[in-house]
Every structure is written in structure tokens, then in C-alpha cells.
Design a protein around this nucleic acid. Structure first.
Lengths: 89, 89
DNA sequence: TAGAATAACAACCTATAGGCTGTTATTATG
DNA sequence: CATAATAACAGCCTATAGGTTGTTATTCTA
């Protein structure tokens, strides 16, 4: 399932959704991160302000991967969304 | 073109690549962001430390979108990578 | 090889991310 | 409705993100 981020406001509800799908409370997820529930709550309430590093850790726990989608070359292979193309770099 | 981020170290070279593909120098991109070349250079040298907000701005200029890919539900529709499914939230 | 353009490094400052504890809503559920 | 679980808010502190200017490599090309 892919969720394209068009605006920063979208991240928050998506994050909460992912956490719930994983059946985790803020406290449970915070424990996995090694921080307090209150600290995690702060992150979840404004994920745009978090560092990539921090979001990445959370997403790893939730089984979610970050992807960068180049819109410039989008049109060339409309249906060829091969697994990973980062090897080209 | 999709670039899945498996490790934080991947972001830096991908970022530089996107900038070059767009034919921009650090100075040129910095100007679009309204900051100095040196400030942008700091961001580019350690993008993991940047906030989502900041990276998002850079990616917008470079014509790159952020995507969250749920690995949990990955197997259900292997080939149905429909455009955007965030409306389901 | 000189000069221009580009990228990187250093020192410095201010705002805020990232953490804590304590308390207060807000949902569940027995 | 009482209580437990969950989520949110407040105040506080320290580390660092995000910005500046000045300087120094590093490419590139006439």
C-alpha cells in the first residue's frame, strides 16, 4: 500500500493509522523506541518537525518504507514500478 | 523512478543526484530555498538530521515526492500499484 | 595556469527537536 | 459509574537543527 505525501499535514494521520494497524498504543511504540509515551506523543502530534532519522526509526518499527518518487521521469515507464531502482545510483 | 530508502546513508547520494538531474548547483538550489549555499551544503551533507519539513521543501523543488510504503499489506496486490491510495484514510 | 564557479569547512548564534516528569483529559470496559 | 488504559498538555532542560559570514578547497574551462 502506497501513500504519497502531498502535504505535510498528511503525515500525522497516516502515522497514527500505521500505528493502529500494527495494534500498538503510543506507550507500546514508545517502549520499542526506548522513549516515554509523552515523548512519542510529541513526535506523533507534529511529525513534520521530526528529523528524518527519527521518523525512519518509527517507520521501521511499523514496517513502513520511505520511498522517493521522481516526478520528472514518471511518464517514461507508467507501469514499470519495478521493486527498487536505487541501484542505478 | 522510485528510490526506496533502506538505510539513512542512501538519502545523501540520492539527493545530490536529484539536484544534478535538475541542473542545479548548491547555490542555485539554496537561492530557491531562500538560504545560503553554505546552509544548503550542511543539509545536503547530512540529510538524515534534517526535519521532514525541510527535506520536503527541497524535494518539492526537485520534483520528487515522498511516499510511504506499507510492507505489511505489500503481498496482497503485487502489481496493483495504483496512483494514490491515501484517500482511504 | 589563472580565474570563475562550485563545494566544503569553521566559528558562531538562536530557535527548536528530543528528551524528561507530573498532571489532566479522554476513551474503553468491568 | 469507577477504574484502567490510552492520549494529550505543561514546564523544564540539553543537544542540535538551521541560519549567518568568512575562508578554503576543488573542479572546470578559456
Amino acid at each position: 500500500m502506497n501513500y504519497t505525501i502531498n502535504t505535510l499535514e498528511q503525515i500525522k494521520p497516516i502515522l497514527i493509522g500505521f500505528r493502529k494497524v500494527n495494534g500498538l498504543s503510543q506507550k507500546a511504540l514508545a517502549e520499542k523506541l526506548g522513549i516515554s509515551q509523552q515523548s512519542y506523543q510529541a513526535l506523533e502530534s507534529a511529525p513534520q518537525k521530526a528529523t528524518i532519522e527519527r521518523l525512519f526509526k518509527v517507520l521501521s518499527i511499523l514496517g513502513v518504507k520511505l520511498q522517493l518518487v521522481d516526478n520528472n521521469t514518471q511518464a517514461t515507464h507508467p507501469l514499470s514500478d519495478g521493486a527498487n531502482e536505487q541501484d542505478e545510483w
